[in-house]
């Protein structure tokens, strides 16, 4: 049996990886994926905490996170399409530089 603390450590590592991905990635799609990783890290933490405390609240909360993530992906991808149409690229730095003043 893997101790629940280990799951929390994995969640932390995942969250940091996601955060770094959001900060350093230039491509919109990868940023979106990094955000997904951060969400799932938070979900893992909820489940792990649920196990530690022996209560179901954390697992129920994860069920709420799932549709939030799905909605986020749907909106994010739609935004991505629009960005591509408008700027011809998904490079976020480039888009930031061609902002309309």
């Amino acid at each position: 049996m893997v101790p629940a603390e280990h799951a929390l450590i994995v969640a932390t590592i995942l969250f940091c990886l996601g955060a770094i991905g959001v900060l350093v990635r230039r491509n919109f799609l990868f940023v979106l994926m990094a955000i997904e990783i951060m969400l799932n890290a938070a979900g893992l933490a909820f489940v792990a905490a649920s196990g530690i405390h022996g209560q179901p609240d954390g697992q129920i909360f994860f069920l709420f996170i799932l549709p939030v993530a799905a909605a986020e992906v749907a909106i994010g991808l739609a935004l991505g399409v629009l960005l591509r149409l408008r700027y011809g690229t998904l490079d976020l730095w480039q888009i930031a530089q061609t902002r309309e003043d």
């Binding site: 959001v22 900060l23 350093v24 976020l92 730095w93 930031a96 530089q97 902002r99």
Partner: peptide, 8 residues
């Protein structure tokens, strides 16, 4: 002006 810097 870069989102990533703000996020950081």
């Amino acid at each position: 002006g870069r989102t990533s810097r703000y996020a950081l």
